[in-house]
């Protein structure tokens, strides 16, 4: 390593626990995104409410597998003792379904994410990482500062040596304390065993299918965050930032 390179990394390397938790969370997030997509492919319809299926109206459908615009169904039979229009019908076509490994991979990834996420939260609180690096400082928490920071992103003046920008702080806080908790809790809300013990989850997220829909949208936002995150890193110096979060001292 030449002297100039050393100078470049010096002082910007993240702490060791930040690096290792960041690494595990990144890997689990990628595993969760891929397996989550595979799970979505077997039923690419989303609903709002307590329950929803091919025989009930969808909020929207996604053209992501051959299950999109579901194929054939036998003639539907109404339940004769119900006053509503509820029916039963038999599916006659073979669907795409890779949930055997899709689901178990998703939950394995979730175990790593939740366990590492907890370590990250505890370390973040007790080491002062959240207080000193992520919490907005006095004078940062106003529209003017945010607007100035936003505009500076288009003038390539986005590099703050050793500290985070205001927008950067807000997006990290939003991801850590809002999106990840929501995506995990809505995941729990889809579990029949967990909601038996904690039925409040079904109330908070408006039911099983609403939770599934919220889970979908929050994961879309997380993927968007990932994309923007990687773009910003690349703009600010991909090699230096990558060194700082991996092997940089």
């Amino acid at each position: 390593m030449s002297a100039s390179q050393r100078q470049e990394t010096e002082g910007y390397g993240h702490r060791r626990w930040v690096k290792s938790t960041h690494f595990i969370i990144t890997l689990s997030f990628l595993v969760l995104t891929v397996s989550g997509y595979v799970i979505l492919m077997s039923h690419p319809r989303l609903y709002w409410g307590k329950a929803g299926n091919d025989l009930t109206p969808a909020l929207f459908e996604l053209p992501v597998s051959r299950n999109y615009h579901h194929g054939g169904w036998e003639k539907s039979v109404p339940f004769k003792n119900l006053t509503g229009k509820q029916v039963s019908a038999v599916r006659t076509y073979d669907i795409f379904n890779e949930n055997g490994w899709g689901r178990s991979t998703h939950f394995l990834g979730a175990w790593f994410l939740v366990a590492t996420g907890l370590v990250y939260l505890i370390a973040g609180f007790f080491s002062g990482h959240f207080r000193y690096k992520l919490a907005p400082k006095k004078g940062e928490f106003n529209f003017k500062a945010l607007w100035a920071d936003f505009r500076s992103h288009f003038r390539k003046k986005t590099y703050y040596p050793g500290k985070y920008g205001v927008l950067q702080k807000f997006s990290y806080l939003f991801v850590i304390f809002f999106l990840f908790p929501i995506v995990i809790l809505t995941g729990f809300t889809m579990s029949p065993a967990i909601t038996a013990s904690y039925p409040i989850l079904l109330k908070i997220f408006f039911g099983h299918q609403s939770a599934r829909t919220i889970h979908f949208f929050s994961s879309v936002l997380l993927v968007l965050f990932l994309v923007v995150h990687v773009i910003m890193i690349t703009v600010a110096g991909f090699r230096r930032n990558l060194r700082a979060i991996t092997f940089g001292k």
């Binding site: 039923h43 307590k50 929803g52 669907i95 099983h208 299918q209």
Partner: peptide, 11 residues
């Protein structure tokens, strides 16, 4: 509620 691994549910 019947919760199917495919993703749908029915009551």
């Amino acid at each position: 509620r019947h919760t199917c691994e495919e993703g749908w549910s029915a009551i």
